[in-house]
Amino acid sequence: MPLQLARTDELTSVLLVAFAVSVFLVSDSFPSGVGGTPGPALYPRFIAGGIAVLAVIQFIDAVVLRESTEQTVARGDLIRFGIPVALLLGYALVLPLAGFLFTTVGFLVAVMYYSGARDLRMTVPLAFAISVVLQNVFVGFLHVPLPGGPLDLGRAVSLTVTGGIL
């Protein structure tokens, strides 16, 4: 059953005002400026004030002028958004632990599978090849460090596969 999110502009406006208020509260602890000049709190407060004013205008626009917006979110929409997000978050969590190569192979296979590429005989070698190339380009050619994982196994594997060409 689709989920109706009515008055999204009003909702966003309220959230933005709450955000602006929190900026004011947090910046209260910032040190004050020296010799009558503005301190570190002035600028973020100026920005937060601007956001609050605009949020109120948006709220009035939506309520008084009846320019209200509505979003219909079907269960399928949530799943189509949620699964890639979950996979991305999983990648960020696993990367420092398992290293670039293994995490990327797993991630690519999972996302390709989710995207409709269901033939693992195709996607697994493809994911492995892409990951090895990226690892070697970044680490070997561009000298950009990537997480090696346990015992730097990923780097060892990719160097073995390419024979240390890159």
Binding site: P84, L87, L88, Y91, A92, L95, P96, F100, T104, F107, L108, V111, M112, S115, G116, A117, L126, I130, S131, L134, F138, L142, V144, P145, L146, P147
Partner: peptide, 22 residues
């Protein structure tokens, strides 16, 4: 279906490569 997974990986690795910070 093959392109977007790679774009995701390039995005994440690109962000990490900035300064090696998760």
């Amino acid at each position: 279906k093959y392109l977007w997974p790679v774009i995701f990986v390039l995005s994440l690795v690109g962000a990490y490569a900035l300064r090696g910070n998760p």
